[in-house]
């Protein structure tokens, strides 16, 4: 199945019952899949919104009304959604947002790119908040992480971002869908009309400084828990590695191919692949630094995650960077040359 469609199917299986989106390449197949299939799901709503701004705000309403809700877009559209994502974070509402990244800045192009790392991992919109960011590297993982995204969003009542790129969205690979878990979302957070109980409101506006500060610290403590509990990563050929590549998503796939070639040439190189970009696997990377000196960060941009790797290492070890922005997809052979160069220099 095609990546974009897999996200849609996984979402519906995970109980997503509200989707609003606005067309943008390279994620259109996801919007179209939802148009076709959301109505198949009992109580499911699909809306082609008038803009990305409208779509994310519809999701805000649907999430508050108790639905598992999702929207998707690609880079320029994700910029427009930031106001709404910030509101979701402020209101502590669960929602899943999919970004099938393309080349930027501006309109850029429609080719695969990883230029939105900073935006995704630093909250993205205004204010002091974070979103959980999942970075799949295969179509199978698109399915698995989409399902997990809904659970994480509910558990932490926080927006969760799936950060993939045009290649993940467009390509087809075999996929198997796992059984969804049953939803655990406390009724008390759902707006349904006050019924016989007390009325409630959901809001982000807190004019009093002390109370706003309290809210900020409360969110902060939540983010601390997420940081402790939800870090995910994969390691590949790291046991005897003397050079470690750090890459995610499509870049990590390419890195694996490059590592195989390099190993054939006798270069001991391995991969750390962050699956959660926020929370970032800081401690894992740091612990590798006790043994490995050389790190090579590889991204399809001009260098964003490399800052987190440097932060994780805190000055120990050597960090090199190799990147191709703008929609260029480097080949494993190209990266293998970079690795060989690093190995010689070392």
């Amino acid at each position: 199945m095609q990546g974009n469609r897999v996200i849609g199917e996984a979402a519906i299986r995970a109980g997503c019952r509200f989707y609003a989106g606005y067309p943008i390449t390279p994620q259109n197949e996801l919007t179209e899949y939802m148009a076709d299939n959301m109505r198949r799901a009992k109580g499911g709503t699909f809306i082609q919104a008038e803009s990305e701004i409208a779509a994310i705000n519809m999701v805000l309403g649907a999430a508050a009304a108790g639905a598992r809700a999702m929207t998707s877009s690609s880079s320029p559209g994700i910029s427009l959604k930031q106001e709404g994502i910030s509101s979701l974070a402020a209101d502590e509402l669960p929602a899943v947002i999919v970004n099938i990244m393309r080349g930027g800045p501006g309109l850029g192009n429609i080719l695969p790119s990883q230029g939105d790392y900073f935006q995704a991992t630093r909250g993205g919109g205004h204010g002091d908040y974070r979103t959980i960011v999942l970075a799949p590297a295969s179509v199978q993982e698109l399915a698995d992480l989409t399902m997990d995204a809904f659970d994480l969003a509910d558990r932490y009542r926080n927006p969760v971002l799936i950060l993939a790129d045009g290649m993940m969205g467009q390509m087809m690979e075999p996929v198997e869908f796992s059984d969804p878990s049953s939803r655990q979302y406390p009724e008390c957070y759902i707006l349904k009309g006050k019924g016989k109980g007390k009325s409630k409101f959901i809001r982000g506006l807190i004019l009093d400084a002390i109370r706003m500060e309290e809210h900020n610290w409360k969110l902060y403590r939540k983010y601390q828990v997420i940081t402790q509990k939800e870090v995910r990563f994969e390691t590949f050929w790291t046991d005897d590695a003397e050079i470690l590549i750090v890459a995610y998503g499509t870049a990590a796939r390419i890195a694996k191919g490059a590592i195989k070639r390099s190993r054939e040439m006798g270069i001991p190189v391995g991969l750390i692949r962050p699956i959660t970009l926020w929370p970032f696997p800081m401690e894992v990377i740091r612990s590798f630094a006790e043994r490995v000196e050389n790190f090579l960060v590889f991204e399809m941009n001009t260098g964003q995650m490399v800052e987190d790797v440097q932060l994780a290492l805190g000055g120990i070890g050597k960090v090199q960077f190799y990147g191709r922005p703008g929609g260029v997809i480097p080949t494993p052979a190209e990266l293998a040359k970079v690795i060989a160069y690093q190995a010689r220099k070392k």
Partner: peptide
């Protein structure tokens, strides 16, 4: 490409299919 990808997948190979898209 799609039929080919589908059949080799049935035969147990790893396979990826990437169509051209957009403009």
């Amino acid at each position: 490409g799609y039929i080919y990808a589908h059949t080799v997948m049935n035969e147990g190979y790893h396979v990826t299919y990437l169509p051209s898209y957009g403009v």
